[in-house]
Amino acid sequence: MSRHGLRLALLYAAALLITLFLLIPVYFIFAASIGPQNSVYDFPKPLVPQNLSFDTLSFFLHYQGVPEAFKMSVEVGIIAVAVSLILGAPAGYAIARYTFPGKNVLQLIVLATRSFPVIILSIPLAVTFLSWNLYDTAPGVGLVHTAMGLPVTILITAAVFYGVPVDLEEAATTLGCTRIGAFFRISLPMALPGLAAAALFTFVGSWNEVFAASILTLQNHTLPALVLTSLNIAPLQFSFAAAVILIVPSMVFIFFIRRYLVAGWGQVTK
């Protein structure tokens, strides 16, 4: 075997090892969750799930508060994605297209928001949300998740709009578009893959976020918050099914969005 071939083989072996290390626990959790309820106690775990059954999943889904928490999580995620795109995309566009005084400082400040630990913010936030009637509501948690996702959204969209040549917008204006029309007909469609990536980060971040969601809700927990508060008291089946339900949406989301993440439209300028 040539040196090059050997290196490649080692590389693939390492990649395979890491993948297995990450996936094997996920696999066993998944396998146990689609078995009958008592299969979660089996040891050693069978490689192939025996007696397919949705008992465990359905037990979880009907567990008290879960359907509501699931709905809450989806609502919070949608709010976080929508608001961070509506605010973040124009900000990213402005950073990409224009030079304005304080631009560098602004880019730094945008990132600096991430350096405030949520723990410090949580008490003032809870107090403020109580007085604004946002406490224990989807918009409230959604807003906090927006604040967490917005910096990344701004950075990603800025990078995306940097990648759309100004020439294209200018060409559109010579062909009959207004400035705004050129944005919506040319830049936005070309930026969609990048915007989808930004949305993905915000959604997954929101879906998995526990701390703020736990502090800022009381009755209307999001799914991770509910799972966290229930872990000690719920049976093992609950944990297994909850893990799957928490992982699956992120994985489905990544699966559908993955080709946009990698390819996008090939840059065709020169």
Binding site: P165, D167, L168, E170, A171, A172, T173, T174, L175, G176, C177, T178, I186, P189, M190, W265, G266, Q267, V268, T269, K270
Partner: peptide
């Protein structure tokens, strides 16, 4: 007048054709 009202058409150095 903005470009669209000038009855001009332009060929850009980069061609600026729309990739999508």
């Amino acid at each position: 007048l903005p470009p669209r009202k000038r009855q001009i058409a332009m060929v850009f150095q980069s061609y600026a054709i729309f990739p999508h």
